[in-house]
Design a protein around this nucleic acid. Sequence first.
DNA 1: TGACTGAATAATCCGCGAAGCATTCACTTC
DNA 2: GAAGTGAATGCTTCGCGGATTATTCAGTCA
Lengths: 206, 206
Amino acid sequence: MPMTVLPPLDETARAILEAASKRFLHYGYGKTTMSEIAGDCNMSTGNLYRYFPSKLDIAEAFVRQLRSDQIRRLREVMSRPGLSTPEKLRAFFKTKLKLVYERFHSRPKAYELSQEILKERLAFAEEWESAEALVLCEILEAGELAGDLAVCNRVRIARILQDAFFRFASSAIYFEGEYEVLAGELDDLMDLILDGFAHRQLQAKM
Amino acid sequence: MPMTVLPPLDETARAILEAASKRFLHYGYGKTTMSEIAGDCNMSTGNLYRYFPSKLDIAEAFVRQLRSDQIRRLREVMSRPGLSTPEKLRAFFKTKLKLVYERFHSRPKAYELSQEILKERLAFAEEWESAEALVLCEILEAGELAGDLAVCNRVRIARILQDAFFRFASSAIYFEGEYEVLAGELDDLMDLILDGFAHRQLQAKM
DNA sequence: TGACTGAATAATCCGCGAAGCATTCACTTC
DNA sequence: GAAGTGAATGCTTCGCGGATTATTCAGTCA
């Protein structure tokens, strides 16, 4: 179920994916042809289709790697010892902003590819959202257990948080502003929302 | 400064705008030609340019009307007597969602035109955002005076609110879901944020 | 002199044939 | 029979000439 577990790839498939990835990163999805990928792997185009149903699926597999790497990093940050639940939530969204911002500016082809796939493959986009929501749920659950947070419905709260920080995951903003400004606005919003949780905490105690 | 005040249009300009609007709504921006507009007004194409610098400016003037109408309605809702500040804030964003949702589904040409202009005319998009922020600021100011709300920096808070509800103004969502679902999610988010204000209120009193 | 014209200009759009490419499949290889 | 081939197929894109259309401007009108 969680997308971080990739179906195991046989050696040939891995070689194909690696060759394709290099070209995608250098030249972009559109400027990479199946014959080039096949050539890099010393095989014919026909054989590629024994390992991937289509070119788009190769790209999806690539983006899947990028994304699961991102999930891994998010988990890493959030599980640093000594962080309170509010701090974890803040770290989650700030890290996400930083990762996406960096990818956008330093690896534009990867960013662009990611966007293309997400547009074509709605199911994948939803899968990815759920994977993130899962991490959020884990943070919330830990907070609940630690008495850090009063949360009645974790799934719902995770969804609300995703809504609230939607703007910071939207590509539109990366043309607008500096990272520092964006991060500042994110902090402001997080302050308000954490106050919301604090208030609920108080209410729950009464 | 506020965009709701349109530069007064002379009679001819108004006629042009009206003729153009009809065609934009029926056939869309791209399928409307300057000669058609001129024909509708019994004048030559050249004369149109004495009143508007370009076709895009006619469209902008039209969208400006739509938008200022929307601002007017937002103000109307928010100034209904007997609403507390939290209720006003909720009404503001729910009304906005409803207006945009309705436009998207019942007047697709108008929606599409709106999007086209906002893409071309960044300055206009920003102007529009500021106009909305201004309304929010007014709500916040009234709340402050009524002792309904503890707000230190109105402009900043307005910005935070716009960030938080960005998703509900983004066109992406109108393909996804039913209005009821969206409105429900908006309510959830608003609940959390209002709790945030409530908490700040308590803090301020101590 | 200000309102307006419409032919001239230049920019953009459109359709269509050619080229390039993803995908398939009958076939080869080991 | 699993792995691989590469020419054949059909789909998509591209480029380009002609047509359409936004914009201009020298000139008319009242």
